[in-house]
Design a binder for these strands. Sequence first.
DNA 1: TGACTTTATCGGCATTTGCCGATAAAGCGC
DNA 2: GCGCTTTATCGGCAAATGCCGATAAAGTCA
Lengths: 108, 108
Amino acid sequence: MPSTNNKVVFPDSDEIAHMLKALGHPVRLRMVCELICRDACCCGEMCDCFTLSQSTVSQHLSVLKEAGIVTSKADGTKSAFSIDRDTIRRLQDGLEIMFSGSGKCCDD
Amino acid sequence: MPSTNNKVVFPDSDEIAHMLKALGHPVRLRMVCELICRDACCCGEMCDCFTLSQSTVSQHLSVLKEAGIVTSKADGTKSAFSIDRDTIRRLQDGLEIMFSGSGKCCDD
DNA sequence: TGACTTTATCGGCATTTGCCGATAAAGCGC
DNA sequence: GCGCTTTATCGGCAAATGCCGATAAAGTCA
């Protein structure tokens, strides 16, 4: 659990909300699962997993990227997407703090 | 971790996405924090926490309710909202399974 | 250079979301 | 019954979302 001195630091709830919003779409959540399993994946491969157009898949990936959940690295004409595991961990920690009721929102 | 026999059961990702979507709004996420701390809260009290109209607060609460995150119980003219802690736990378990890569989406 | 592959972005669209004020519905106390 | 309080719902609006096909951009390889 993140802390400064010995006080629990409440995660930035707006940032958490932002990540949850990105994850809160069936397609994007499945994309994240896929990326966790594959470790890396390009847009074309992701397209094979869904019956969606390439542009739609690309847009979903960019939503995940913009939220910090996914990173991309150019690889020739392709771009390799992968999970930002630190962000995921921060999200899980943040949720745990929130859901445990030990966060900042409680003492105001 | 939920299981049947000794096989890990992957959570229903659409349901998870639905809950994440409900939580993926700054106001609603804060409402959940508030409810976790207060244990129960009526709409009017929630209104005091935000600079939003009563109708907007009521709508946000109903989104949380519809997603199963919150329950409500009539109490005179008021209705008492409280966190469904089982649902929260299921959500956290589901995310943990997904994020650990041990869910169903990996073996297809 | 010129075809080909891959991805990102643009324009357009129908639908959903988020917000409000107004109003309806329902319980409480007199 | 009559006010009062509290909440839910309605109508309306602007903005965001999700989707597509078309197109641009950029790398690869002959």
